[in-house]
């Protein structure tokens, strides 16, 4: 479980995060949603320790991140998997080498064991034959799946995904969403996804945190988001006619 209390973050005079408090449960897909510029990426980078923050605390299963020693932070980070918006695969390595990278760095596995583990996770993300390709030879969807494979190869306790569906066609986006949810259930990972894809919200949002102007404007689940009267949320989530219609149908079916 990840708990965030009163998080504040500024860049110069720009106050980006204005006291966000929330928690992300184990074994659930937790979504952070909001408009562009609402502070989602800054929030997730604070969670990962890539940005320092002025006030507040972030704790991973009771361990307050800012109070950890450098070695403890390093050990904690070895338990974190991250899927970046642009996949962030190492372009000088093959796909298999990318996936084996965390194992090389943090385990004492032999080369054969690492290859077996990479083989297993690449099959898990439906890429059984991509081992020898370079990232530049893979499509956007494949790169995302390789990034997921690299993120889960070392059995992380926490999985972070920054806009995992950006730049993907709707079919591939659904495949990636389902894959993340299956992996979260299967390995009981605490998954935090930063997204503004409404399909993801409806499909896999077991917990949803809505950010607006650096504040938490709403928090709930994919079920409660249909029923909320919070205008800020409904204006954002149901901005398209399609989603307005879906919401109306959901309410009619469940009333």
């Amino acid at each position: 479980m990840i708990e965030v209390k009163g998080l504040h973050k500024s860049f110069g005079d720009a106050h980006i995060l204005k006291g966000i408090s929330t928690s992300f449960s184990k074994g659930k897909t937790n979504l952070i949603i909001g408009q562009s510029g609402s502070g989602k990426t800054v929030f997730i980078k604070c969670l990962l320790g890539l940005f320092d923050y002025e006030e507040g605390s972030i704790s991973y299963d009771g361990k307050i991140f800012s109070q950890l020693t450098e070695d403890e932070k390093r050990n904690l980070r070895a338990e974190i998997g991250m899927v970046f918006q642009g996949s962030a695969l190492f372009d000088s390595m093959t796909i298999a080498e990318n996936v084996m990278f965390p194992l090389q760095m943090f385990t004492k596995m032999s080369k054969v064991e690492m290859e077996e583990r990479a083989d297993f996770v690449l099959k898990r993300v439906n890429l059984p034959d991509a081992h020898k390709k370079m990232p530049s030879e893979a499509s956007g969807g494949m790169q995302k799946r390789v990034a997921i494979a690299r993120a889960i190869v070392n059995n992380p306790k926490y999985l972070f995904c920054d806009e995992p569906n950006s730049g993907l066609d709707p079919n591939t986006a659904i495949v990636i969403d389902n894959l993340i949810q299956e992996i979260t259930d299967e390995y009981q990972i605490t998954t935090v996804i930063n997204s503004h894809d409404m399909n993801s919200v409806m499909e896999i949002g077991e917990k949803i945190v809505f950010l607006k102007d650096g504040l938490k404007a709403w928090e709930g689940s994919k079920e409660t988001i249909f029923k909320t009267d919070n205008k800020i949320v409904t204006d954002f989530v149901y901005s398209s006619n399609l989603f307005k219609k879906v919401r109306r149908m959901y309410i009619e079916e469940n009333s």
Binding site: K45, G49, R74, I80, M82, G86, A88, P102, F106
Partner: peptide, 17 residues
């Protein structure tokens, strides 16, 4: 610089490297 732009350096940092 390309590794910085494409978040590969962030990926290393997140891994604790």
């Amino acid at each position: 610089g390309t590794m910085r732009v494409t978040e590969q350096i962030d990926a290393l940092e997140v891994m604790g490297i």
